[in-house]
Simulated scan of single mutants.
Amino acid sequence: MGEIIIATAVLGVTALIIGILLGVAGEKLQVEVDEKELKVRELLPGNNCGGCGYPGCDGLATAIASGSAKVNSCPVGGINVANKISEVMGVKLEEKEKQVAFVKCGGTCEKSKKKYNYYGIQDCRKAVIAPGGGDKACSYGCLGYGSCVNECLFDAIHIVDGIVVVDKEKCVACGKCVSTCPNNIIELIPDTAEYRVQCISNDKGKDVKMVCDAGCIGCKLCTKVCASNAITVENNLAKIDYNKCINCGKCAEKCPVKIIRKSDTIIINEYLTISI
């Protein structure tokens, strides 16, 4: 009986010592948490989309609290979240121009030609490694299998007539679609840009016409009518400098293949209307 009492006492003393040591270690080794970081994290939406360039909302909150990221770095939260974070950080909010994703391809089912029928996995990143870079005759264009659609957390991208289009009213410019597209045909542009070049091909005009009726042929007619010198043709492709463009629309009027298009609203079906 005495041995049991002694063993119990030893265990009790040992447990007490361990508890004390753990308590002391917890006090000595605890990591101080920045209160501002916690407040910023509470304000962030929690989508963890990575559009800010940091590993999720936790990473962005740490960066903002340390001063290495701007208070308006979250594309999802927008101006409302940015205003609240600026109050927490005690800094003045810098104006940031809203951006939207734009798909630089007009090769719909009717306008683009195909080399063969693809029956593989319905994923652009898989299809692009097929012979010839996919089934489309134009190796630059949208493959239309919706990898970007699956990555978008905001229902801002839809496949319409064989290519993807972006609903700019829903787009938060997180950049997930940009990084997902294997052909790099999606870019972030200013929301105020009314006219966009819907092509990315660098082939010569005659080669473009052989594979697609909606490709830029590098004719330079758009550059001749642009009063603000906002359009240049480089490597057979027209490019718009949005810092110079005044949205006059003369380039779109003159384009013989109509690949410079204006932002518009399209009706996909009776349930879905999107602004592009």
Rank of each mutant, 00 (worst) to 15 (best):
I276E: 01
Y116W: 14
I20C: 10
G133Y: 10
E234C: 01
K224H: 04
A65S: 15
V91H: 09
E234G: 10
N243F: 04
N83W: 04
P131E: 08
D58G: 07
C181H: 00
R261A: 09
V88R: 12
K206D: 15
Y242V: 06
K204C: 06
G50K: 10
L153E: 10
A65R: 09
N80S: 14
G26V: 01
K176E: 13
K168P: 01
P45V: 13
I79C: 02
A193P: 06
A193C: 02
P55R: 12
K113N: 03
G141R: 10
T232Q: 05
N243V: 03
G141L: 07
T192F: 02
K168D: 06
S73G: 00
E95F: 11
I185W: 04
I163Q: 11
E94C: 04
K206T: 14
K96H: 01
Y140W: 15
G56N: 04
A63W: 13
V24I: 15
I240N: 00
I85C: 05
L22M: 13
Y119K: 14
G107N: 08
Y54I: 03
R196F: 12
S68D: 00
L221E: 08
P256H: 11
T192H: 07
D58W: 11
E169I: 06
A137K: 14
A101P: 02
T223H: 03
L21Y: 09
Y145G: 07
C152I: 00
G12T: 11
I85F: 10
G90L: 12
I129V: 07
A214L: 06
D135V: 11
I5M: 05
E234H: 02
L44G: 05
C109Q: 14
V13Y: 12
T232Y: 03
G51A: 11
I274T: 09
V160F: 15
K98V: 08
T192S: 15
E32N: 01
V166L: 12
A63T: 01
A7R: 15
D203E: 12
T14S: 12
A127S: 10
I121M: 07
C219Y: 03
G215R: 00
D58R: 13
K258G: 03
V71N: 04
D191S: 15
K111P: 03
V100C: 13
